[in-house]
């Protein structure tokens, strides 16, 4: 027990929590926007892979880091366009199309990787985002290390959460996006385009997912591996449910989740790690996600038109 308290009090633990939470926050916000507009986007896992790959490759080819982020976002939006074209105007099964997009995006990343780096055995490294040194704040004892020595992309992730919340609840556009996920016919009656709003939401949301993926290569690991997204996308789908489709709660969920993840990594170094197999620790995030889904199942406020395609003139 005292070991756990020691871990929870250490500054490096909280620094890790914020770092681990960042890609989850970005991708969860992306998924949340899609779902609030009524579209379940199961392309998320593959779109994160594409973001991780394209962002990294762009920087490896000589682009600046923020250029890599922009490339990742654009690539994600392209796959969002593919997903939303099939699911919104054509109203195809969001389950099947989403999985298809994930398979297609993952395969595209693998294909392009092998095409561009045919001979390499280990992927080349790039110079990643460095922790920002903020005057005074970064030098604070404990807090400086825990909160104020993060990369710019982490700050961007938290800013995105704030912007998404403001956009959804404080702007007419946000109202329209929320309405299209609850009652598309009413939105149509207002003279707004259901197709346009939904496609726009999926495209923007997919862009954010891809930036979440790019965080892994540009800020966390500085290299690209095929298996690096490793189910994070699916965990983000669970986090949206856990956050009851609200940006603030989803943000807290991502941080809570990251805290468990950071804790399990550290617990592996303790006596518990000797007694229990390390695979149990690695499985913890997935087990927690399932528990979170069960916990929230009864009180989830699902958008009423989630997964319901809208066809004009049909009731």
């Amino acid at each position: 027990m005292s070991e756990i308290i020691d871990i929870l009090l250490s500054a490096s633990f909280w620094a890790a929590v914020i770092r681990i939470a960042s890609p989850l926050i970005l991708a969860t916000m992306g998924e949340l926007i899609c779902e609030r507009a009524g579209v379940l986007n199961l392309g998320i896992e593959g779109i994160m892979v594409i973001g991780a790959f394209t962002g990294w490759m762009a920087v490896y080819q000589g682009m600046p880091l923020w250029g890599g982020v922009a490339v990742a976002m654009a690539a994600g939006m392209l796959f969002g366009l593919l997903h939303s074209t099939l699911t919104v105007p054509f109203g195809l099964s969001q389950h099947v199309v989403g999985l298809g997009v994930t398979l297609f995006a993952t395969a595209s990343a693998s294909f392009a990787y092998r095409l561009m780096l045919p001979e390499v055995t280990s992927p080349p490294k790039i110079d990643p985002f460095r922790p920002l040194d903020i005057p005074i704040l970064s030098d604070l004892p404990w807090l400086g290390e825990a909160l104020f020595s993060q990369t710019a992309l982490t700050w961007a992730a938290f800013a995105v959460a704030g912007i998404v919340a403001l956009m959804l609840y404080r702007t007419p556009l946000g109202l329209a996006v929320r309405a299209v996920g609850e009652n598309p016919a009413a939105v149509e009656a207002q003279g707004l385009s259901v197709t346009g709003l939904r496609m726009g939401a999926v495209i923007v949301g997919s862009g954010l997912m891809a930036v979440g993926g790019a965080f892994l290569t540009l800020s966390a690991f500085s290299s690209f591996f095929f298996e690096m997204v490793n189910g994070r996308g699916w965990i983000c789908v669970a986090l949206v449910v856990f956050g009851a489709w609200k940006p603030g709660k989803a943000l807290l969920g991502a941080i809570l989740f990251a805290a468990f993840d950071a804790l399990q990594i550290r617990l592996q170094q303790t006596e518990l790690g000797v007694v229990l197999p390390y695979q149990l620790f690695l499985a913890l995030p997935f087990i927690l996600s399932i528990l979170a889904l069960i916990l929230m199942s009864r009180r989830a406020e699902v958008p009423a038109a989630l997964m319901v395609p809208y066809n004009k003139g049909e009731r």
Binding site: G231, W234, V237, A283, F286, S289, L293
Partner: peptide
């Protein structure tokens, strides 16, 4: 989501 997570 639950079946996907169980794969991992």
């Amino acid at each position: 989501v639950t079946t996907l997570l169980l794969n991992f």
